[in-house]
Simulated scan of single mutants.
Amino acid sequence: MESFQVKKGLPSTGMWDVAIGAEVSPKPPRKLEPEQAPLVFEEAVRTLRGTPGEDAILSAFQDIAAACVAGLAEACRLESEAFSGPAVISPAALTYPEPLLRQGAFAFMVFHCRIGADGQVRDCKVVEGARLPGVEENLAACQLARYRPATISGHPVSVDYTFHVRFVPEGRTLTRHQEQEWARLRVRQNPESRSAWLNLARELAKNDPGDPLYPQAVARAYFLAPRSGWAASETAWQLVQSGQYAPALSAVRPFLRRSHNPYVLETAAAAQFGLKQCTAALAEQQKAVELLPAEWPAPERERFQRKLQDYQSACAAPPATP
């Protein structure tokens, strides 16, 4: 995800924030058993070393992702290195709608598009902001943008691409309460928008995790965006708290091998411990402890350490009987 602010070409009283994100494929990776992973990975690498068509490229990348999920470390390394997102050549000439600018109004637009292997933006649709003035002009501006295409191991590929455009009056900021109210308004107005639900869930996680809406927001965000590692991890943690260890592990497993986030690892460890998979739980919690940032608060670091000690005690082999 790339985030940036621009003022160029705008009146001195307005600005926008733009966040853009690319996804290589809407399909989840196939499921592999650990013993299948090396052969599947080897075949995928062989494909990418040749001159494959786009379908073969995407299929090979999906196989690499599947091998990563199955626990093959070299597949995880290649997956993280092989994909390069689109790079802007000629950005979208977005404009703050004049009626909103005059009113000093905040506004949000979300456009879902594809960037082809030729770098052209196409197949755009409005996800949020359909009734706002200026939406068609800004949609057209997105489609006129040009990019260097995304690549997988150097091969150009098409990707889904989402533009999040937030219009903010110059010199104005929202309070924490206003940010939350805006987040709630977005999901009411756009109940099928994964961007809106992810935003609401993150706002509540950061500022009000005790809100009764938070579990629903997380569940809805995960349903609409199952490839969001954050939504998957939060959903898995909630499942762990309710004793649903198998679905929790299923939710977080696709992100486990590629994650360096202690919370993701902690969640997986808790699910594995609940399933009495002691060896796996100890390994994941140990890795989580090793990855704890030095700048984290001492109480939080100590909590991770205590949980590791709890697992070590509970998983200790019983003394041998004479």
Rank of each mutant, 00 (worst) to 15 (best):
G50F: 07
T51H: 15
T51S: 15
P52W: 10
E54P: 10
D55A: 15
D55H: 14
D55F: 13
I57W: 01
I57G: 02
L58Y: 04
L58H: 08
L58F: 06
F61S: 06
Q62L: 14
Q62V: 07
D63Q: 06
D63A: 08
D63N: 09
A65L: 11
A65G: 11
A66D: 00
A66E: 01
V69P: 05
A70V: 01
A70N: 04
G71F: 02
A73D: 13
E74Q: 14
A75P: 03
R77N: 14
L78W: 07
E79V: 11
E79D: 10
S80W: 10
E81D: 15
E81G: 08
A82Q: 08
F83I: 10
S84T: 15
S84D: 12
S84L: 14
G85M: 03
P86G: 03
A87L: 13
A87Q: 13
A87N: 10
A87G: 11
I89G: 10
P91M: 03
A92T: 11
L94V: 09
T95K: 13
T95M: 08
Y96D: 00
Y96M: 00
E98Q: 12
P99Q: 00
P99A: 00
R102Q: 12
R102H: 08
R102N: 08
R102D: 07
Q103P: 04
G104N: 01
A105W: 05
A105T: 03
F106R: 11
F106K: 08
A107Q: 02
M109R: 12
M109A: 13
F111K: 02
